[in-house]
Design a protein around this nucleic acid. Sequence first.
DNA 1: CGCTGTGTTGACAGGTCTCAATATAAGTGG
DNA 2: CCACTTATATTGAGACCTGTCAACACAGCG
Lengths: 256, 256
Amino acid sequence: MQLSKHSFDTRGLMDSLPLNRILQFADLDGDERQRLSQLAGPRVKMAAKQVIREQGDPVEGVFLLRSGWVSAFVDLPDGTRQLVRVHLPSDVLGAPSLALHVAAESLVATTDIVVATLSFDAMGEIFRSMPRVAASLFLCANQERVILMDRLTSIGRTSSAQRLAAFLLHIHERLVAINPRQSALFEMPLTQKHLGEAIGLTTIHVNRTFRKFLDAGMVVRKGRAIELCNLPALRQLAVAPERNWRSDPGWFYNRI
Amino acid sequence: MQLSKHSFDTRGLMDSLPLNRILQFADLDGDERQRLSQLAGPRVKMAAKQVIREQGDPVEGVFLLRSGWVSAFVDLPDGTRQLVRVHLPSDVLGAPSLALHVAAESLVATTDIVVATLSFDAMGEIFRSMPRVAASLFLCANQERVILMDRLTSIGRTSSAQRLAAFLLHIHERLVAINPRQSALFEMPLTQKHLGEAIGLTTIHVNRTFRKFLDAGMVVRKGRAIELCNLPALRQLAVAPERNWRSDPGWFYNRI
DNA sequence: CGCTGTGTTGACAGGTCTCAATATAAGTGG
DNA sequence: CCACTTATATTGAGACCTGTCAACACAGCG
């Protein structure tokens, strides 16, 4: 990992990780959370646009995003790239590449971020002695698959306006999952170039499509933030099926 | 699951499952394989076009594909659908929906198939007492994420010919992974409609694109089979990055 | 034998991309 | 704080790729 000059280590019990994402399917007990936090490496600050790990780099573990946004790209030889995932705080980064020797995706800080590392040894420890945490990671990976499947469907089967609406709604829903009091107004650090790379359109066409949303009053821009003013209309436009993630603790963990 | 009238139960030690996919990252010992086979439910035969589990159906576990091809679709309200995954023998089916109450994808038999079930209880047992098998499932899930990311990149950033080439090559590579002696000639049970649903094109455009491959001699059709006659040309056309899956047993399992 | 699913082809419409240019905002160094 | 540079956003015109509509051939199958 490229270390920022501002990087520093504050590992310790008081320095608990944001585990919202891993804990979403069921509560882990205090001991499990504490051990998980202890397994994480030092937290590292990085500036926006810094590269956490580039496609082709050797895989030495995964990362836990403590704060900020990270974009995962698949780079193509011609210089274009596909934004395959926008990561928000508490996300596990880079796990897909665990199946590979070298990273399949480039992880790029979209905002200033703080990340911690989870080494192979830490992963091994989790699977060896923390089966409920292992199951949580497994479920998160499968949740990511559903999200990728929905993105694939959006890009493969729907128009530019539908794609953009679905993507903006998806980001909003994820922010709500992190903070239930999140309103429809949120900071949007992704540029229109990012949006195009995410939904399979050119920057120019994203601009035209986004402009239609603005003109229609469905979205309003306020500085670097946007407000989704007409969620029902956006939802109707974006035909994406609703996904209700499991949150009933007993369903799976009781069996472990 | 919809039971075929031909379904029958042959669970038993002699009835070992095809575990190529789960074993790909590392060898499990005989005891682990045996217990895994015992955990699986009865094997069930189903005819082509039968639905294993439909989008919206309650999730009660996952499936192990013993033989045949299965397609996973995300269905849209307007009747169109995205083919998000082609499953081959030894694949785990339906795992993405573990994170949900109801299935995110429809699993449809593309050929006549034989599947076995893996219940929640079986999954719990795996995570509780077979950590190396759990890790294998986790790695498979992450491998699937890479594959989905590559499909997303293909659809989002490349032309119709590039998409079709990448998809045909992907199928071929997976067949080779199952059978290293697999030649470039293989049965293709997917219709052009399937292909279009997989790579985000209309059937008609798939036909035109495929025809160009035929006219160029890159692909030859032999009955229900096709032969990829010019793999280098197809690979150059499909800009998809090559993914070399880990197969060094020690890297992760030694830590468990 | 008709039926249904699949493959094939042409003409045309439409959505998205490309190219070019400009405006606006953000970042940087003096 | 300003001048400069860079990144991002915006707009128009035209080309190209892909989709739509319509029609027909062909095969498998009951």
